[in-house]
Simulated scan of single mutants.
Amino acid sequence: MADIAYKGASCLYENADTLAVDSLDLDIEDGEFIVLVGPSGSGKSTALRMLAGLEDIDEGTIEIGGKDMVGVPSKDRDIAMVFQNYALYPNKTVGENMGFALKMRGVGVEERKKKVADAAKLLDLTDYLDRKPGKLSGGQRQRVAMGRAIVREPQVFCMDEPLSNLDAKLRVQTRTQIAALQRRLGTTTVYVTHDQVEAMTMGDRVAVLKNGKLQQFSAPTELYDRPKNAFVAGFIGSPAMNLMTMPIVSDGVRLGNSTLALERDQLSALHAAGLETVTVGVRPEQLELSTGDGGIEVIVDLVEELGSESYVHTHIAGDGTQLTARSLTRTPARLADTVSLHKRDGAVHLFHPETGERIGD
């Protein structure tokens, strides 16, 4: 077990014009489950590989358990990797795959068998120890890869999009198993994914990256309730937050022919900033569909029925600004209908129209 510290850690690939990871600062506590999330090219996998010793640290440092890892070979960092493609030996049984790293270390046969048996019990693989990987499902193979990491008893787990090859149902099941297993083992874990739902449901804290730079590092609820900038606001949440840059009026912001009212402290913050327009963020669940008068008049573009709820995709009549609303009941709205959206109780988020930084509390 160990804590981890990224201190201004940067990585520049050969012949690249920009840093893959740019001055990353993260303090990860012993036993935490941390998720690195971001779009393709954000630097999340590179940051993980830097921790594992698979990429050079060009500037700054990374510490594990208080020890500087710059120049330390991967094999000497006491880290276990779990990859997207499982990386199992097809000619070896499940038990042999799980115990192979221990065999290479010279661990005795009996001790090796015990560690493999214990890990197999944790992962519900006991009945499959004599099978070859080709006879297993995708979820079972991923559990074998997890078992191979567990038997090493490392101080850190590094997981690079381990669920990407699984179908949607199996992903949900396996991510629940991984999160529960990590809580039981208490091993510090750094997990990379591009799926923000996966990040929000698994991580104790989540680091959101964009273009190699850290945007926000917080608990999932903090990311959702108080995004630091417009990028985080739009990336976290499914469906995405409605973000639109609109003119400021005396009591709020103008949306089409309607006004979205703001709190007094928000109006004061906008006045202090001297802005004429502002980027407004409203989550779909804060918008309620109505066929009555008042509210924001919109035209329905698409209705997604999900059974227990539906998402209504619309645009504001006149200016084309797109808005998505969530309805917990089956909506009567149909394509091309004109309806009204009313804001439910909940925060309206404000961001600077140029920098994207959050305005106010």
Rank of each mutant, 00 (worst) to 15 (best):
Asp76Ala: 13
Val280Met: 01
Leu122Ile: 13
Asp225Thr: 13
Thr259Arg: 11
Glu198Asp: 09
Ser340Trp: 07
Leu163Phe: 08
Glu222Gly: 05
Asp118Lys: 15
Ser45Leu: 02
Pro220Asp: 03
Met1His: 12
Glu110Phe: 02
Ser258Asp: 13
Glu222Ala: 14
Leu163Ala: 04
Asp118Ala: 15
Ile316Gly: 11
Met146Leu: 15
Ile57Asp: 07
Asp3Cys: 04
Leu328Glu: 14
Arg254Asp: 11
Lys75His: 14
Val172Met: 10
Ala16Asn: 12
Leu270Thr: 05
Ile236Leu: 06
Val278Arg: 01
Leu51Ile: 00
Ile62Phe: 12
Tyr311Pro: 02
Val21Ser: 08
Ala325Val: 02
Met1Tyr: 08
Val21Gly: 08
Glu357Trp: 04
Leu88Cys: 07
Leu102Ser: 04
Glu32Ala: 00
Leu350Gly: 06
Ile79Cys: 01
Gly256Phe: 05
Leu122Gln: 13
Ser250Asp: 15
Thr176Gly: 13
Ile28Arg: 07
Pro73Arg: 12
Thr61Ser: 15
Leu260Tyr: 03
Ser258Thr: 11
Ile57Ser: 09
Gly99Phe: 03
Ile299Cys: 14
Pro220Arg: 04
Phe231Leu: 06
Asn15Ser: 13
Val312Thr: 14
Tyr13Asp: 08
Val206Ser: 00
Lys44Arg: 13
Lys213Cys: 13
Lys115Trp: 08
Val72Phe: 08
Val298Leu: 00
Asn15Glu: 14
Ile316Trp: 11
Pro227Arg: 06
Phe231Val: 04
Arg326Trp: 01
Lys75Ala: 14
Leu102Pro: 05
Asn242Asp: 04
Ile299His: 09
Leu48Ile: 06
Gly71Ile: 03
Gly8Arg: 10
Lys213Gln: 15
His349Lys: 02
Ser327Cys: 12
Gly346Asn: 09
Leu36Gly: 07
Pro227Met: 06
Gly256Ile: 03
Thr279Pro: 10
Gly360Ile: 01
Gly203Tyr: 00
Lys228Ala: 15
Arg264His: 13
Arg254Pro: 07
Glu111Pro: 04
Ser218Val: 05
Leu243Val: 09
Met50Asn: 06
Leu243Phe: 10
Val37Asn: 01
Leu341Pro: 01
Glu55Asn: 14
Met241Cys: 07
Ala333Asp: 02
Glu63Ile: 06
Leu136Ser: 06
Leu341Asn: 01
Ser137Asn: 07
Val94Met: 09
Ala230Asn: 03
Ile4Lys: 01
Lys135Ile: 03
Ile57Tyr: 08
Thr338Arg: 15
Arg358Ala: 15
Ile299Arg: 15
Gly252Leu: 06
Gly106Pro: 09
Arg326Tyr: 02
Thr245Cys: 03
Ala145Trp: 00
Asn85Phe: 10
Val312Asn: 09
Ile178Met: 05
Lys121Cys: 05
Met81Pro: 03
Val303Arg: 03
Lys103Gly: 08
Asp293Trp: 02
Pro162Ala: 07
Cys11Gln: 13
Gly292Tyr: 01
Ala168Phe: 07
Asp27Ala: 14
Asp30Gln: 14
Gly186Thr: 06
Leu51Ala: 00
Arg184Pro: 02
Met241Trp: 06
Gly234Cys: 10
Thr291Arg: 14
